[in-house]
């Protein structure tokens, strides 16, 4: 009985995702646009999953993790509370501060406002995935050496945002860095170090391949 239900839910979850994909929903934004919203509502009512737990497989740092989660659980909470992957921090919980920044298919997302079920089928990279075999990534190294940290709670988010930014723009100006990292907040006031770190990391990464 239970098995049958899970199977059904899995099928529903899949069809919902397929539908959302078809409806032009971006994963990171999660917004339905224009007239497709009404159509979405009608279609989703037949394919709704939850509120109980549904099976989810998350691919994190190259490894698959099978979970049973309520659809309302965010990607951030799934990792922090259910997988003990805690490098990404829960700070504003509202897509303002960037402390939870992860990469989804190499694009930065605020994991506090991505549902775990939305992340299924995507490659998730967290701060833990950037330090391969315990080696600091060039961005991490630059943050350390430029003391771009005090309490350190915003640091993993900044490292992720900076890594993603430099993947897009490998030779940034200071102004571009300030725009590129404008989606993250620090309370201790480490921005002076972060500016230096981002410039230095860009230099160090020239020609080098970025993890993740």
């Amino acid at each position: 009985m239970r098995k049958k239900r899970e199977k059904k839910e899995a099928a529903l979850a899949l069809s919902r995702r397929d539908f959302l994909k078809g409806a032009g929903v971006t994963v990171s934004g999660g917004l339905l646009v224009g007239s497709s919203a009404a159509a979405a509502e009608a279609a989703v009512s037949e394919n709704v999953v939850g509120p109980g737990p549904v099976p989810i497989t998350l691919r994190i740092n190259g490894e698959n993790h099978r979970l049973s989660l309520e659809p309302r659980i965010t990607l951030l909470d799934a990792l922090r509370d259910h997988l003990n992957i805690t490098g990404s921090k829960k700070v504003c919980d509202r897509a303002t501060c960037g402390a939870c920044t992860m990469l989804m298919d190499k694009k930065p997302v605020y994991a506090c406002t991505v549902l775990a079920i939305e992340a299924e089928g995507h490659d998730i990279t967290t701060i833990e995935g950037l330090a391969k075999d315990g080696q600091l990534s060039p961005v991490m190294e630059a943050f350390w050496k430029n003391d771009a940290q005090q309490c350190g709670f915003c640091t993993p988010g900044f490292v992720m945002a900076c890594t993603a930014f430099l993947m897009k723009n490998s030779d940034p100006t200071l102004e571009e860095i300030e725009k590129g990292l404008g989606g993250n907040l620090c309370r201790c006031g480490t921005y002076a170090g972060i500016r230096r770190a981002a410039l230095e990391a860009a230099k160090a990464m020239k020609g080098a391949q970025i993890h993740g």
């Binding site: 805690t86 921090k89 701060i127 833990e128 330090a131 600091l136 991490m140 350190g152 709670f153 640091t155």
Partner: peptide
């Protein structure tokens, strides 16, 4: 403790499971 902080290994109270 910089390497622990920049790599996300540092465990804050909020991170304790």
């Amino acid at each position: 403790d910089g390497p622990a902080k920049v790599s996300g290994r540092a465990k804050y109270s909020y991170d304790i499971n």
